[in-house]
């Protein structure tokens, strides 16, 4: 009995969300940018915030940090209301911003030490922590370098190291791999994956769907300041897109003919000028025929990118 009670107590304790946002709204002047967001992030979760450029992702993150004052709505972080407790809350958050704001006046190591000082971390323990973080992000031999001499990838890794200097209970990453080459990206994904498996709670935005698929346990898709979908990436893709995608390239009259032939199948179609996207929920003989016979057909598993494009629109469609 007591064992059951203790479990219960423990589970209610661990299910209190780390971030709880309701009705969050922001207008810049009279332009609405965020329009009533509601979402929560639970301990150990890694939530991907997706959305096209200008959707309001960065603005939302900046509101969580008190850098943008919400027009309306409530924010709780660590179960504490943000307003009036900003200092206490920020003590436990690590942020890697979209816009690189490393301190160009300081060296790599000094950047970390100075940042640690803002959290009130003692210099000796800051130094230990900085050195192990530099090692973790493969910057160990760069500690004396000035920031201008770092490559884009090294700067991003330093931003991540800086975000972790206070051993945060919540890690916020705004496009952590923007503008990096595949090697640099994979290194960062690998490190962030290790953190996630370690149970670090994360909120991450990205335009690399591969990144979100591998790092996020749950995604929230926003468009024009509103949440348009959320859930586990794999099951969302299966439900809303399908299991596989066929991309057929041809003249548009030929594609139209193919499309009519598929009317009896459990598929969704999306046609651009000379390409037909067939989102397959279940296979049928007509599809097999296309897949085998058509000259220009690509068959691939349905991905988060398909879902994203389906929900937020395929820009090329407007062309």
């Amino acid at each position: 009995m007591s064992g059951w009670f203790m479990n219960e107590a423990k589970s209610t304790k661990t299910t209190r969300p780390i971030v709880e946002v309701s009705g969050l709204t922001k207008h810049f002047g009279d332009r609405p940018v965020v329009k009533g967001l509601d979402f929560s992030i639970f301990p150990g979760e890694s939530v991907g915030l997706l959305g096209p450029n200008g959707a309001g992702k960065t603005t939302t993150i900046r509101m969580l940090l008190g850098l943008v004052r919400p027009t309306d709505g409530h924010i709780k972080v660590f179960d504490i209301p943000l307003s009036g407790h900003l200092r206490r809350i920020k003590q436990r958050i690590g942020v890697s911003p979209q816009m690189d704001n490393l301190d160009p006046d300081l060296s790599v190591l000094e950047n970390l030490l100075t940042y640690a000082s803002y959290f009130g971390i003692k210099r000796s323990s800051a130094r230990d922590r900085a050195e192990s973080l530099l090692g973790f992000f493969a910057l160990g031999n760069r500690s004396g370098e000035i920031i201008e001499h770092l490559s884009g990838g090294q700067r991003r890794r330093l931003l991540l190291a800086r975000a972790l200097i206070n051993s945060p209970d919540l890690l916020i990453l705004d496009e952590p791999t923007v503008g990096l080459d595949p090697q640099a990206r994979h290194l960062i994904w690998e490190r962030l994956g290790a953190l996630r498996r370690h149970g670090t709670t994360m909120l991450l935005t990205s335009h690399y769907m591969e990144e979100v698929s591998s790092l996020a346990t749950r995604v929230i898709i926003v468009d024009q300041g509103r949440i348009i979908a959320s859930g586990k990436p794999a099951s969302m893709v299966r439900q809303m897109v399908g299991i596989e995608v066929l991309e057929v390239s041809d003249r548009s009259d030929e594609l139209k003919r193919l499309a009519t032939g598929l009317r009896s199948c459990d598929v969704e179609l999306d046609m651009t000028k000379n390409r037909l996207f067939i989102y397959v929920k279940k296979w049928c003989p007509e599809l097999e025929a296309i897949a085998l016979s058509h000259r220009q057909v690509i068959k691939r598993p349905a991905s988060l990118e398909d879902l994203f494009l389906k929900l937020t629109g395929r820009t090329l469609r407007e062309d």
Partner: peptide
């Protein structure tokens, strides 16, 4: 801005 992302 970087400083304001910390408790300062």
């Amino acid at each position: 801005e970087a400083i304001l992302m910390t408790p300062v």
